[in-house]
């Protein structure tokens, strides 16, 4: 593997990790879930995030 490929892989992995921790991969998760269990056309990315941000859920944060 060339240095460039390695750098690209590292960058992809880092982006994957950061997006995962922040929850930015939720739309992809939703699509995967929808493919298996959903009916009809999935929400568009915009629709999904609108619905997502209206959920009243809150995660606890510690001291």
């Amino acid at each position: 593997m060339s240095l460039r490929d390695k750098a690209a892989t590292t960058w992809r992995e880092l982006a994957w990790f950061v997006n995962g921790v922040l929850g930015a991969n939720k739309y992809q998760q939703y699509l995967a879930h929808h493919r298996r269990h959903g009916h009809g056309a999935p929400m568009t990315e915009r629709e999904f995030w609108r619905a997502e941000s209206d959920r009243p859920v809150v995660e606890g944060r510690c001291c």
């Binding site: 930015a24 939720k26 995030w49």
Partner: peptide
Amino acid sequence: YLRYIRPGKVAEVS
């Protein structure tokens, strides 16, 4: 930004 301009771009907005 996240709701109206670029939804879902969490890392970018952070």
